[in-house]
Design a protein around this nucleic acid. Structure first.
Lengths: 339, 339
DNA sequence: GTGAAAGCGCTAACAT
DNA sequence: ATGTTAGCGCTTTCAC
């Protein structure tokens, strides 16, 4: 099974290896006859170009790096899927690394990828990343980089995001539309931009509908876990006679609230309507099924790759383009927990 | 920002590039003085070897391919995490591709990876893969390959698995230990080896405890979804006076059954105990929390990489070793749904 | 339309 | 202990 190389083909055919290379790579200055000859033999011998040699020659790896806060996570795994699927259609493969939502780890993973000579990077910032020198350095080095989902205004580059304010506003509007008069919000602390924006969207919806923002309806948990949602849910139980709607900033919190309400024998949605955020797989199997906002990870991943791919091409051709931010639309999914 | 290469360092230092290379790669035949000199300058100039050149020279990519039936899947994503984490500690990166549990796609993804010159492959067979020529060809080609989770006796290679029979037996035994006398099984059709084995384990536990296998307690669904579990659960409701234990071959089915029982106002675990299989994240947030069998994906992934790494080393050193199968232990997780 | 030749940056066998 | 040299297999400029 000796390797089939350009030289081998050229020797068999009695022509030079450069002509073979040109024939294989669709160069214009090769006679149709030679071209056909080469293509046929290559096919017959099952010639595969040696990627290592190609990489060295072109200084391209056809690999991109994807840094994700958590791999074991419904939303993020749909992003991984979206990215890898489109990437493959362009002949790119994807190296996935997890930052664990940790700045130090993010820096380390980025360095690892650069050492691997990836052609570009897709990055969702770790929660605790507040300095951006490491990212800016990479951009200044000329490595194509696109931020997705968790981005920062302080970094000037291409981005792919959703509009959290609008999405949360729509979720709250949905509760208003079905007749809720007193709507609570369950959220984690106002630290991450996502939570801040969803909180804004909630308030915006209230105001635009002539409703007051009431601090006593604003339930803050320690994180966005099931338990935090349940704790908030229990507080809501105590005031269930006023509260008739709940918007939770994550599905997990919403499900925690759902459980608390169930344990207090408060009927959802008859007494209280509940809507979550993200459309995790989970939300389809709660009882009642959870209304939520679809956060389309697959689409985000696909688009992020496409934007990065464009940037890689521009880079190769020395085209400079201003950074743009692509906003992926979200939709409210109405299920049995709201009515 | 001109690239720092071996030549550059060698010129600055007035020595040959091979000496520089040797110093950098810890060869024995370099004087300590030269070595220190080289190392210092390399550090200072922030020298990074050009991976493309290294790859071409060594014909190694330091990349492995991971083929997984589904990316958006709790269990499988823990495997991805396990693999990528250990791989990185060895300087390897991981390309993840999804087979969609589809034979044709599996063949295609494998081809893509081989074209990318991965150093080894981790493969979990698609459900509908019944011919193994594509896998055997790769093995015969000398490419290190390890099967994990979904394997086949017809392929002679290293494997990393769990013991489904034993795991299911332990789950059933758990129900018996807590006093269940009539234990139903909820499962999908006996097609995939996993289901077949879990079914076996269920029966084995019954027999070893002097209990009869009763066909009427054997509920077969069309797949292993939430809905299939719910349908089976509804049938169990009709016979809840006899049945006091349920073993579902997946957590999703168990959760479906849980919901059916709840809707029929049958108390879990007081009237019926329910145990699932896999220990998905889900199982921690059902009410009541679901007892289950922990299927340690992270461990499986870690071990699969280690076995593959060993195989890659052996391959390099022309060491032949007989194929082995590593069995990762599973444990019963007792939660509120059984008592 | 074809071919010769240079060279991407590295490693390793061999010579000194 | 150090240096020389020969590639790894490919792409691409330049000459013919």
């Amino acid at each position: 099974m000796s390797k089939v190389t350009l030289i081998k083909i050229s020797k068999i055919l009695g022509i030079s290896k450069s002509t073979v290379s040109k024939a294989l790579n669709n160069y214009a200055d090769v006679s149709p006859v030679t071209k056909k000859m080469v293509l046929n033999l290559a096919e017959e011998l099952n010639y595969k170009p040696n990627i290592f040699a190609q990489n060295l020659r072109t200084q391209e790896s056809k690999i991109i790096g994807l840094i994700i806060p958590e791999i074991v996570h419904y939303f993020f795994s749909t992003i991984i899927q979206g990215v890898t699927e489109v990437a493959k259609t362009y002949g790119y493969s994807v190296i996935v690394l997890q930052s664990n939502d940790n700045y130090k780890s993010e820096v380390e993973q980025l360095a690892f990828m650069l050492d691997k000579n990836v052609d570009g990077i897709l990055l969702s910032l770790a929660d605790d990343t507040i300095h951006f020198k490491h990212v800016k350095d990479i951009i200044n080095q000329g490595v194509p980089l696109v931020l997705y989902d968790r981005t920062s205004k302080l970094i000037d580059c291409n981005k792919v995001v959703i509009d959290d304010v609008k999405a949360a506003q729509m979720a709250t509007q949905h509760l208003i539309d079905i007749g809720c008069k007193k709507i609570a919000i369950i959220r984690n602390q106002l630290i991450s931009q996502g939570t801040i924006d969803r909180h804004k969207g909630y308030k915006k919806a209230l105001l635009e509908n002539g409703m007051q923002y009431d601090k006593s309806l604003d339930f803050e948990g320690l994180d966005f876990s099931f338990n935090a949602g349940k704790i908030a849910g229990n507080k809501i139980c105590e005031r269930h006679e006023e509260i008739d709607g709940v918007f939770a900033v994550t599905d997990l919190m919403a499900i925690g609230a759902l459980e608390a309400l169930k344990e207090c024998n408060i009927a959802v949605p008859d007494q209280v309507s509940v809507i979550g955020f993200s459309n995790w797989f989970l939300s389809q199997i709660t009882s009642p099924h959870l209304s939520t906002v679809d956060q389309p990870g697959y689409e985000i991943g696909k688009t992020a790759f496409n934007v990065l791919y464009q940037e890689i091409q521009n880079n190769k051709n020395n085209i400079k383009q201003a950074a743009r931010t692509v906003v992926i639309p979200t939709t409210v999914i109405s299920r049995a927990s709201t009515k």
